[in-house]
Design a binder for these strands. Structure first.
Lengths: 150, 150
DNA sequence: GGTGAAACGTAGGCCGT
DNA sequence: ACGGCCTACGTTTCACC
């Protein structure tokens, strides 16, 4: 397992902020020579600490202006029921995240669609037809005062 | 506003998948010369369609093995109350996302800590002391069968 | 949108600590 | 085992077509 010392911590912090900065700039920021810095980055990638690099897009400029979180309760807690639900949900493009949680419901989903009509369609035509679903509660996102992933 | 034609769509799709692939590889994938491709990427950045580039880290390898979603209800819906709450929440490192939602509660938060003890500390010492908070419901994440951001 | 060439960055061998 | 130096190679970037 790769050791996360102070320098690796700074590297990860910097790459989380801007994954496309050059290795030269990164090396200077963390106080290392370029080659030493590159070796550390490669080791972090190899070890799986860095899982990848992604562009962050502005959903509002791209037709995913509607965001909602939806809690879903199932009518059975068997493995088969959960797997069937997860399979169905994986196929839906609108579902960006699906978390299996403890509490009064089994799942918390993040849904992104073009608008409310798009959400309604997903809600009734996709989620509504799944036989495993017992309860649905929608929380429409009006704003995100803090979002470290955006 | 920048037009999202078929090629820009492919560019965004590719950069979402791997933000660090070379412009040469990207150009070939979208069927453009490197210079034309670079101009499009730069324009997408300038227009704010691409908001930035981030490394995706493996939380389990880094001491944020505990993830929970928390719904928070406030005891007043005034602007001042909301702003005070949002200011307090912004300062907390454990809060990775804060969404203002419709429904029976006002906020949905994503919390990441080292372990359950770390969560308990945040729950009682940070969230518990805010005077604006009326209700708290915790949904501990046991797994994420789908997470497009990870 | 494509071409070409200069500027720049990457990546890996090598040596010192 | 880890960091710094050097250099060949690849990539980015931009003026020009």
């Amino acid at each position: 397992m790769t050791k996360i010392d102070a320098i690796n911590d700074r590297i990860l912090q910097e790459l989380s902020r801007d994954a496309r900065q050059s290795n030269l700039a990164l090396a200077e920021r963390v106080g290392l020579s370029p080659s030493a810095c590159l070796r550390r980055v490669q080791e972090l990638e190899r070890a799986g600490v860095i899982k990848g690099y992604r562009a962050v897009l502005d959903g509002e400029k791209l037709g995913t202006g509607f965001v909602a979180y939806v809690t879903v309760g199932l009518n059975s807690h068997t493995k088969a029921t959960q797997e069937a639900f997860e399979r169905a949900i994986s196929r839906a493009r609108e579902v960006r995240e699906c978390h299996n949680v403890t509490g009064t419901v089994e799942y918390l989903l993040r849904i992104e669609t073009f608008d409310l009509a798009g959400y309604k369609h997903w809600h009734t035509e996709v989620l509504g037809v799944l036989p495993q679903v017992r309860s649905i509660t929608t929380y429409v996102v009006m704003g995100s005062p803090k979002d470290d992933r955006a």
